[in-house]
Design a protein around this nucleic acid. Sequence first.
DNA 1: TTGCGTGCAAAGGTTTTGCATGGCA
DNA 2: TGCCATGCAAAACCTTTGCACGCAA
Lengths: 139, 139
Amino acid sequence: MGYNTRQREALLTYLSDAPGRHITVADVCAHFHERGEAIGTTTVYRQLERLVDEGLVSKYILDGNTPACFEYVGAQAHRRGGRGQACFHCKCERCGRLIHMQCDELEGIGAHLALNPMRTVFYGVCGDCRAADGEGGAV
Amino acid sequence: MGYNTRQREALLTYLSDAPGRHITVADVCAHFHERGEAIGTTTVYRQLERLVDEGLVSKYILDGNTPACFEYVGAQAHRRGGRGQACFHCKCERCGRLIHMQCDELEGIGAHLALNPMRTVFYGVCGDCRAADGEGGAV
DNA sequence: TTGCGTGCAAAGGTTTTGCATGGCA
DNA sequence: TGCCATGCAAAACCTTTGCACGCAA
C-alpha cells in the first residue's frame, strides 16, 4: 500500500511530533528547507493526500485564498474514537487563529445533521476575543 | 454612493429575479454571454462586492477550489430581519447541492458561538439524501 | 468636467498534472 | 526488475490589481 520513502518518513515524523497542530503545506516545506533536507511541494501534497486517505491526517479546507491545513490525528477510528479524532474547528475572524471546538451541543447538532467535521469549518469569534471584548462568552 | 450603470442594472435584475438561488461569478458571465450582452468578469466581481457591502446580496465562501456563490437577499437588515437574511448553508457531500439550513438549535448555537453565517458552510448529508438512505432524518 | 465604472491584461495565490528521473521492495 | 515516488516545470483554477478608456451625473 505504497512505499516508505525518506520524504514520507520525515513528513510523518514532523506531523506526529505535533499532534493537534494546524500545519500548511508551506509550513512543511519551510521546515525541511530550513533543515537543509528539502522536500518538493508536489510531494508534500501527494503524501498528505495519502495520509488523509489512510486516516492518519485530517485536512481542513478554509476559505478560497487561504491554504488548506493539516493535522495529525493518529490511527484512531474516524468517529467515536478516543482522543485525537476529527473535531470541529473555528476560524476566528478577529485574531485569525484556527481553534478546536469541543462543545456537547455542537456534537449533538453535528450528529443530528450528519455533518462532516473533517470539512466543516466555522467562522466566528473565538472565546478569547469575545472575552477581551468583555462579553464573556465561553466556547 | 456609486453610479447605476447598465452592467449593474442587468446584474441586479438577474439576481433579484431568482431570490435565494446560489449563483457564481461564472454563472453570471455565462448568462449574459449567452444573451449577447457580455459583462467583464472583473466588473462582476466588483459589482457583487458592492452589492454585498450594501446588504442586497450575500456571499458564501465554500471550500478552496470551489468558486464563491452569491444570493440575492433583498434590502432587509442583516440579522433578525424578515425572510431572506443571511442563514447557514450546508453543502451536501452526496448530491452536491448547497442547501439552506433553518433550524432553531442551529441558530441558537450560532448565536452562542458568535458564528458568521455568511462564511460558515457546513459539510454533511442533506435531508433528502438521508431520507433516501432510509434513515429518515429531518433538517 | 469630474470621478467612478469598465474591461483587458497580467499578476496573485494555492493546487494539480505531465513527464523524466530516481529509489523502494 | 517493476512499479511507485519524486520533483521540476507548467498548467489549472479562482480572484485581485494596474491601467487606459468610457460613461454617469
